[in-house]
Amino acid sequence: MRRLALVALLLVGACADRDAPSPITRVAEPADAIDQDLMVALAQAKNFHHKAKVYTSDGNTAAAIAAVRQILSLRFPPSAPEAEDVRDDARALLAKLLVGQGQLDEAMRTVEEGLAASTRDSFFVANLHTVAGEIHEARAAQLETGDGRVTTERRAAIGEYDKSIQINEALQKRLMDER
């Protein structure tokens, strides 16, 4: 009989727990709302850019390059558009620093990686094409006058600038239409 009473009490307790108020509605939030993770990643990218700027002003380009590379390894929230923008911009800066170091192939590889990883056209992608044009220009400058590759590099630079211009124009038009 005691066991039966105990079972009855447990059942009553279970029913009471089931009656505990539970949230039925919740405030709907868009999945792409700015959250703390995004702000942390942006803040870290900001700090690494400032470090690179200080190193660059001190003439320590290698340290600046290392600082910018760390931006590429930051973890952003998945599908955050800012992540792609920040990485593209970091690659553009990295490529320019590499160009300043004479590492044109590494600079071009950095730009190509950025273009390959981009999922949409943006002003940052256009900027990467601009930097790619500068790299081609730098290559052409390194070649001696009369070298047939000079023309090729210059044409390639023009081609990259054209792509940048096209992307910028298309984006500006789209943004104007959205307003």
């Binding site: 792409d32 709302a33 940052f124």
Partner: peptide
């Protein structure tokens, strides 16, 4: 309040400001 592309905020990047 949303995470979104930065194009409208940054605008076209001039060549002299690429870095």
């Amino acid at each position: 309040w949303t995470s979104r592309p930065s194009d409208a905020l940054i605008g076209p990047i001039a060549r002299e400001h690429a870095g």
